[in-house]
């Protein structure tokens, strides 16, 4: 039996991009594979739940779990992997803060089921059949995972040791995290394994930002051709870089697209969306209600914009129904 540290990967409610990001390590993936024993990685290798159940508790040195927790199956696997792992890492925005799937918390489970199985224009379902969690036919019994009431970030289900942010995380963050794991030089439990400083600090356009931009109009990326040298916020695009944890080298901004906040907030912030709201509204000009309302109308969907990756971790956790 190998004495190399055992590592697991798992995929819950997410798009698969996080799995891709592991491959994005390129040559470094060989370094990782050489240094560790991957004992569980359903996306890439053939493992079953039973294999995990058979492992001794805490026998996996670290599991990197990506994806939010939406179904009972995901929830069960989270509990199981928590039990089997010394270190559980929420990998990527969805596990970290609920991610894009978290936006589903604007709708009740019933609304989602009804739309998907009845109202969606592509749906033909005259009997309005819905998936059942238990199903018996011809003496066979099938069980399907249950869709939970809400989407949860990993730490809303189990105890999480570390977070690697990003949609998806950059290869550099993953590599740094693996190196830290291997060397045992890990920061205090609960840390996000990315710098505790916002994107602007790494953004090359920072110097171009005037001190007072007093926006009278917010624009959406498709409405303008942004100057590739200048601060995007100063050009009217609601760039979330000021309120979003850095460590991404401002890649989106380098690609002339505003930051959408995938790394989540920095440590001092309790509610990412509320903080984004605060600084963006502060950036708006106007003293009269009608002017202010007009300017801020340029942000047509505050919830979707400010909590694109973090509605599950919003202090209200979603829409109050």
């Amino acid at each position: 039996m190998s004495t190399k540290p055992k590592i697991g990967f798992y995929w819950c409610a997410s798009c698969g991009g996080c799995e891709e990001s592991v491959v994005d390590l390129a040559e470094d993936v060989l370094m990782v594979v050489g240094a560790v024993d991957i004992v569980f990685w359903p996306c890439a290798m053939d493992f079953k739940k039973a294999d995990v159940e058979a492992m001794p508790d805490k026998s996996i040195v670290a599991t990197l779990l990506n994806g939010a927790i939406r179904s009972s199956e995901q929830e069960e696997m989270a509990h199981l992997l928590r039990r089997k792992s010394q270190v559980l890492i929420a990998y990527g925005s969805c596990a970290h803060t609920g991610g894009v799937p978290g936006l589903a918390n604007q709708f009740t489970r019933e609304q989602i089921m009804k739309y998907v199985y009845e109202d969606a224009p592509t749906m033909v379902n005259d009997k309005k059949t819905r998936p059942q969690t238990h199903f018996k036919e011809d003496g066979r019994e099938t069980e399907l995972p249950q869709l939970r009431n809400v989407v949860r970030a990993l730490d809303q289900v189990v105890d999480v040791d570390y977070y690697i942010p990003g949609c998806p995380p950059t290869p550099k963050l993953l590599k740094d995290a693996v190196l830290a794991l291997l060397s045992g030089k890990l920061p205090p439990k609960g840390s996000v394994l990315a710098p505790n400083i916002a994107v602007c600090q790494q953004c090359k356009r920072n110097d171009s930002k005037p001190q007072d931009i007093s926006l009278t109009e917010f624009k959406r990326p498709h409405q303008i051709i942004a100057d590739p040298e200048k601060c995007l916020l100063a050009q009217g695009l609601p760039c979330l870089g000021p309120a979003t944890r850095g460590g991404c080298d401002a890649v989106c901004i380098q690609g002339n697209m505003p930051c959408t906040g995938c790394f989540g907030p920095v440590d001092n912030v309790h509610d990412h969306g509320a903080k984004i709201l605060s600084y963006l509204a502060s950036t708006a000009a106007g003293k009269e209600q009608k002017d202010i309302t007009k300017t801020l109308a340029g942000i047509p969907d505050p919830v979707g914009t400010f909590y694109r990756y973090g509605l599950a971790k919003c202090v209200l956790r979603g829409k109050v129904s």
Binding site: Q106, G273, A274, L277, S278, L280, A281, S282, A284, G286, K287, Q289, I292, T293, L296, I299, D301, P302, V303, F306, C314, L316, G318, K319, V320, S321
Partner: peptide, 18 residues
Amino acid sequence: YKTLRRVTLLERMLHDLG
């Protein structure tokens, strides 16, 4: 005035949050 700007947007967001 800064309060008014923040509250204007917050009102809308809270409404969207139900």
